[in-house]
Amino acid sequence: MKSYNIYISGVGGQGIIKTSIVMGEAAMKMGKPVVMSEIHGMAQRGGVVSTELKIGPARSPIIPEGQADLLIAFEPLEALRAIEKISNQGYVITNTSPIFPFNISVSEHPYPDINIILEELASNSDLFALDALEIAKKAGHILSLNMVMLGAAAAVPKFPIDKTLLLKSMEENLPPKSLNINLKAFEEGYQSVIKGNNL
């Protein structure tokens, strides 16, 4: 028995930690062991944010290189930065709309071309790419981007958490005011992967 390992990365303020908690609580409700690691602090000021979840038998939430079954990247550059984490049989879900680092105009290295990012991600894993920002906007609010990503993850083959429990966990963790938008965002993300929006 091995744990199912999920690595989530993106940029501060995208709702990554909340999404991870929604997943973790849903896994717990399924009776599965789950551990998670989150990094706070400096990351909140526009830096990289990442969480790691292991569902199944594991004591440490830290995912060694090449052992993530699923990478959920809220931002394409951050997907590329996390690429070493993905296992050979792993899946990648990435948002395609970039957030440029604040100092990109003076950065030594330019922001990579999105097509090159996607090509590289697809080269050793199954890739689902979606414009989560656009989908979130259509769902009613850009802040529902995290639930678009969660919905997309839920549709990945072998994803170990029941969809119904995820929805229940969303109800318990998200503000009631925006729940409908978030549920819609989730469903749109889910459907976009089901419909095979992979490149």
Partner: peptide
């Protein structure tokens, strides 16, 4: 061997 990717950094900054 780790593939070196020259990715732009994303340092934290003032809001």
């Amino acid at each position: 061997p780790e593939k070196s990717r020259n990715l732009p950094k994303r340092p934290p900054t003032l809001c």
